[in-house]
C-alpha cells in the first residue's frame, strides 16, 4: 500500500497520462484525424473568403482589407441578372416541390400502409439515386423534343427540372416529422368535433410546420446550388449564379469570383444554420 502511494506521488503526470489512456472509448490517432479533416474541409473555403476582401487583383498575396470586389460584383450586370434568375428559379422550385412533397408525405404517413407504398417511395427518391449528369442529359433530351414539337420556350423548363429534383430533398424532413407525430393527436381533434379539414388546419399543419420549413429550406439550398442540370437545361438568358461562376472560372481566376462565391456560401450557411436551429427546437 505504502509502496503504491509513493509511486503515485513520484509521478503524478505519468499517472494522469495512464488514466487518460484508460478512456476505453478513445482510439489512438482518431482525434488527430478528425481535427485534420475539419481543417481540410474549412481551410480552402477560408482562403477563398479571406481573399475576397483583398485589395489586390491577386488571390494569393494579401495587401489590405477592401470591399472593392464586392462592389465590382454588385455592379456587374451579368452577376446581377444571374442572381435574379437563381432566386426566381429557386423560389418557384421551392414552393412547388414543398407543396408536392408535403402532400406525398401526408399520403404515406397519415394512414395505414398500403400496397404500392414502396413503389411511391422509390419514385419520389429516384432523382437521388441517379448520377446528376444522367438526369441532366436525359432532361435536356426530353425538353429539346418538347420544344421542337410545341415550339414553346422559356424559363419554365428550368423551373420544372429544379422542382423535380428538389422534391426528394423537401420530402425527407417532412416525412420524418410526420412519422414522429402520433396519429392520436388528430384523433383527439376529431373526438373534439374537428372535421377532417379543421383537424388538418388546427392540429396537423401547425405541428408539421417545422418539418415543412426544414424541407423548404433544403429545397431552396439545393436549387440555388445546382450546376449540372442547370448547365444542360438552361437556355440563353437563363444563366444562374453557379453557371455564371463556372463560366468565369473557365475564363480566368479573379477576386470578383471569390466575392460572388462568398455571398453564395453565406446564403447557404445562413439557411443551414437556421435549419439546425429549427431542428433542435423540433426535438424539444
Amino acid at each position: 500500500m505504502a509502496d503504491l502511494a509513493t509511486t503515485h506521488d513520484a509521478a503524478p503526470a505519468a499517472r494522469a497520462r495512464k488514466l487518460k489512456a484508460r478512456d476505453l472509448k478513445a482510439m489512438p490517432g482518431f482525434k488527430a484525424i478528425a481535427w485534420a479533416c475539419i481543417v481540410a474541409l474549412y481551410l480552402p473555403l477560408i482562403v477563398l473568403i479571406v481573399f475576397s476582401f483583398n485589395d489586390n487583383r491577386s488571390v494569393v498575396k494579401w495587401t489590405e482589407f477592401s470591399l472593392r470586389w464586392y462592389q465590382a460584383a454588385l455592379e456587374n450586370e451579368g452577376i446581377r441578372n444571374a442572381a435574379w434568375v437563381s432566386v426566381k428559379v429557386a423560389l418557384v422550385a421551392t414552393i412547388l416541390s414543398t407543396i408536392a412533397a408535403t402532400m406525398a408525405a401526408l399520403a404515406t404517413t397519415r394512414a395505414a400502409a398500403f400496397k404500392g407504398q414502396g413503389l411511391a417511395y422509390a419514385i419520389i427518391n429516384q432523382p437521388l439515386m441517379i448520377p446528376e449528369i444522367v438526369t441532366a442529359i436525359a432532361t435536356l433530351s426530353l425538353f429539346s423534343l418538347v420544344k421542337y414539337v410545341t415550339g414553346i420556350t422559356g424559363i419554365g423548363y428550368l423551373m420544372a427540372a429544379h422542382t423535380a429534383f428538389c422534391i426528394p430533398f423537401a420530402f425527407m424532413p417532412i416525412r420524418a416529422r410526420l412519422e414522429d407525430m402520433t396519429l392520436t393527436l388528430e384523433q383527439a381533434g376529431a373526438d373534439l368535433y374537428a372535421t377532417p379539414l379543421q383537424a388538418f388546419r388546427y392540429i396537423t399543419l401547425p405541428l408539421l410546420m417545422p418539418g415543412i420549413v426544414a424541407g423548404a429550406m433544403l429545397a431552396f439550398v439545393v436549387s440555388l446550388d445546382d450546376v449540372i442540370i442547370t448547365l444542360m437545361v438552361a437556355g440563353p438568358g437563363e444563366t444562374t449564379l453557379p453557371i455564371y461562376i463556372l463560366g468565369a472560372i473557365r475564363r480566368g481566376i479573379t477576386p470578383e469570383i471569390n466575392a460572388v462565391s462568398t455571398i453564395l456560401v453565406g446564403v447557404s450557411v445562413l439557411l443551414v444554420a437556421l435549419l439546425f436551429l429549427v431542428q433542435r427546437r423540433m426535438e424539444k
Binding site: Q187, A188, A190, D191, L192, Y193, A194, T195, P196, A199
Partner: peptide, 8 residues
C-alpha cells in the same frame, strides 16, 4: 368521431 357527442 366529430359527429358524436362523445369525448375521450
Amino acid at each position: 368521431p366529430h359527429k358524436r357527442p362523445v369525448n375521450t
